[in-house]
Design a protein around this nucleic acid. Sequence first.
RNA 1: UGGGGCGUGGCCAAGCGGUUAAGGCACCGGGUUUUGAUCCCGGCAUUCGUAGGUUCGAAUCCUACCGCCCCAGCCA
Length: 552
Amino acid sequence: MASESDTATSNFIRSMIEKQAATTVATRFPPEPNGYLHLGHAKSICLNFGIAKEFNGWTNLRFDDTNPDKESEEYMQAIKRDVEWLGFNWKSLCYASDYFDDLYECAVALVKSGDAYVDSLSAEEIREYRGTLKQPGKESPYRNRNAEQSLELLEEMKAGKHNEGDHILRLKIDMASSNMNMRDPAIYRIKKSHHYRTGDKWSIYPLYDYTHCLSDAIEGITHSLCTLEFEDHRPLYEWVIEKVKASSVQVELGSPVQTEFGPLNLEYTVLSKRKLVELVQKGIVNGWDDPRMPTISGLRRRGFTPDSIREFCRRIGVTKSSAVIEMGVLETVVREELNESAQRRMAVLEPLKVIITSIADDHNEILELANHPNKPELGSRQLPFTREVYIEQSDFEEEPPPKFKRLIPGGEVRLRSSYVIRCDEVIKDENGQIIEIHCSHDPDTLGKKPEGRKVKGVIHWVPVEQSVKSEVRVYDRLFNRPDPLAEEDYLNAVNPDSLVVLSNARLEPSIGDAETGSKFQFERQGYFAIDDDSTAEHPVCNRTVGLRDTWS
RNA sequence: UGGGGCGUGGCCAAGCGGUUAAGGCACCGGGUUUUGAUCCCGGCAUUCGUAGGUUCGAAUCCUACCGCCCCAGCCA
């Protein structure tokens, strides 16, 4: 259990709700099924589900599926799985596509009331007519086409009688508005694509600004929480609901209020679906659940837990500024949880053979090792101590740097949970490469301190014969600069060494049959999770995060 | 003078006219330790983008200035 605090830090959204009369708090998490969820979504999920739960309200999971070109069943299923995995339960599973009929009916009403019209300008012309940030736009010549004509065209668009781009349905607001979103925004475009849910029923699809607010209103959402970039859309959000309510349609609409919060930014990675799609499609990573990805599925495979991700979201807070969070925060939450829950094991990532010459060839002493140094209730496991063991290559230095407390020629070191050994001889091949180390052990040091001297170093080890050969994947940050987007092309900032595969690692035998997803601390090295690729014949471990290291 | 937002220590973030300006991460000590881990103890903003003003009193109110972010998809 992570130290998930029960005293939630105050934030402006909570304060706002506290000041409001005690009404139900109804929220929604509205992803478009066009990719996998990432940490930015986790922040939104924790906020939406968390705040509703806190005020005894409810939350819908709604798929904002109005652009069939980019959406799929696969993405939809992945999103559902990830939200559930994070530990949240939705009240209703909704789809914007379920409202297509109602939405169309509302659009017809808006045309009739003179609040919408079919424009027949081309996309380029519309862009020109829109004006610029500093100059007002000008009205389309089709803007005052009568309602009957617009209605007829809209029906034809719906019936598939026109080609994509020929016409578009726009709201009639204000082409001179200083808010670009109010310059007669498009609300329906002709698109003859197959929709993963509605199939080929529709030839026109509603756009976000029109769909989102009405979906919220239809579901009875009270608090529509979204990120800062939608701040400018709020007047439009309110305009649409007001106009539809004033129209003759018999769709029952609530009165949702949109509130915006700052999006999550994380150092050394990118959090935008468009860019994550690119990383996947260009093969820069191995799929959406590549453990280097900031996706929920990637983090899960990497060894993160739902608790640690929720704790991360709690710690970063919710404000109106776009914060850039340091990786250290993410690393800390998962270390804190795994330190409590993960059983300890020994594993040698880059083996160096040690022969303990003072021990007989057939020596096979069974050691009983605690699974957790501070939690005896987690029990113990057995590990054979034999004449030949592997230690980490980096735990031996012929010419040690200052303050090196590991094995050196003539020096002593403790084999973790075992005996103190002394390095007597370094065996090299004809090229001068170290092949093995010959040591002798002090038989009187099992479970006790050596007499008359102190041995500072403790290193991990595994028996040569009984250890299990395994592949260990060590991950580093995906990008080599904290702000990859500051690069001309962010792909230039991809870290070429973000994955290091150690294919000759040795695990202590008790890990051999651990199931996929199991998490351990490999002592002195970090936290590791058994990967999906792992099999009994070929175990594969992912390093979730290293231990805090004040030495190297 | 397009419009909309945001500026509290290296990174987050409380604070809402009277507090010694919470807390976390990071960092720096010191102690314990058969993981250079954990754990423990201590340190870490006379100051809240800047400059003025209001007030007995300002991070909190006002004014000006500076900096950063977002907006011209028939994406969401």
